[in-house]
Structures are given as structure tokens and as C-alpha cells.
Amino acid sequence: MIDTIFLWIAAGLTLAIFSFLYKDNPFYKVAEHIYVGSAASFWFLYLWFFDVEPKILGPFKEVFHAYGFWGMWAHFGATQWILFIPIFLSICMLLRFIPPVAWLSRWAIAFTVGMAAGLGITGALQGYIVPQTQATLLPVWSGDLLTSFNNIIIIVATLTTLVYFFFSREHKGIIGGFAKIGITFIMIAFGASFGYTVMARISLLIGRIHFLIFEWLGSLF
């Protein structure tokens, strides 16, 4: 019985969301608000039980249970003490609700942005730039016609795309010519990516329609 109720709710919400394809309407509004509201509660619980509880409170709990509130401080190790940094930054974020000290939230943001920028530089170098450079160091002739042709495409596409992203030179003359070849390669790659992703999206649509026809309507007949 309960399964049937949930099946009807799922089908109803799916149709309500699809109704947006016609135009904005009350059914869509209801589905949208249920979605946004339930997502907020879901993520609140998720973050509490998978982040705050195990990562922040968890390491303190054991020491607290063993030694009590006053005794636990003497038994904190590096695991517990280091957590005071994120706790402090979290409190700074929450201080936004108190206008006189709301500016303290900027400390937490500044810390996160600075950390992200620092990690981003090495991450981009290690994850993208160096591997891409290494993968482009290919012989023009590799003994096989198709592989050699492939190598030449990779080399030309990488070099001309790099030229397209020159910002301190006007795209004129030779640089302009290379940049045009570069943007052509970029667009060909995007075209391929577009087709590939659209196929994946269509399979998602097929999944939903399959649900409506076989699971929902199938349960009626």
C-alpha cells in the first residue's frame, strides 16, 4: 500500500516537473517548492550526519565520555586540537547573524579562498598542464599512418588552442591565423562533447518515461 502511495507521488511530481515544458503553472510551482524544501532538509541532515557529527564532534565525544568535560582537556591530542581551527572559522561564519561582528565571517571566506587558490595552482599544474604537455610530446611519424595522423592532430590542436588563449596580443596576422585554427578545434571538440552529452541526457529522459509507462501506468493495468 505504502509503495503504491509513493509510486503515485513520484509519478505526480515527475509529471508536474514535465509540465514546465508547456509553461509555468501551479503544479510546477508545487513540485518546485517541494523539491527545494526537501533538498534543504536532506542536505542539512546529510551534512550533519556525514560531516559535522563524525568529523567535528566525533573526535571529542570519545574523550568526553572517558574523562568528562573538565577532564577531557588534558587528554586532547593533535586530532582534537587541530579541529579548533575549523570550529573557529565556522563560528566566524555564524557571526554573520550578529551585525556588529558580522565582518568576522570574512576571515573564514578569506581563509577558504586563499587555500583554494593555493591548492588550485598546484592542482592545475599537476592535474592538467603537466600531463597535457607530456601527452603532446609525440613523434610526428610513429610507423603507422593512422597513429601518425592522430599525433599530428593532437599536436596542432594543442598548440593552436594555446595560441587562441593569448590575451596580451591582438589576434591578427600569424597569431590570428593560429587562433582561428585553435577555435576551430575547440568548436569541433565541443560539437563532439555536445552530441555525447545529449545522448546521455536522452537516456535519462528514457529512464523517466520508462518509469511512467512501465512502473506507474503498468501498476494500473
Binding site: T133, V140, G143, F165, F167
Partner: peptide, 27 residues
């Protein structure tokens, strides 16, 4: 910083061209 990044790209292009020559001869 934009100018500096462009010079990094020039450097990478030079390295890639040199690497392609090396790899082709090595083959």
C-alpha cells in the same frame, strides 16, 4: 598576471615543439 600567463604558454609551446622534435628523432 595575464602577461605572465601568456609567457608561460609561449614557454610551453617551445617545450612541446622541442619535445616533438626529440621524440620524432628518438623514434
Amino acid at each position: 598576471t595575464i602577461k605572465g600567463e601568456d609567457w608561460v604558454k609561449i614557454l610551453l609551446i617551445a617545450v612541446i615543439i622541442l619535445g616533438i622534435i626529440f621524440e620524432s628523432i628518438a623514434f
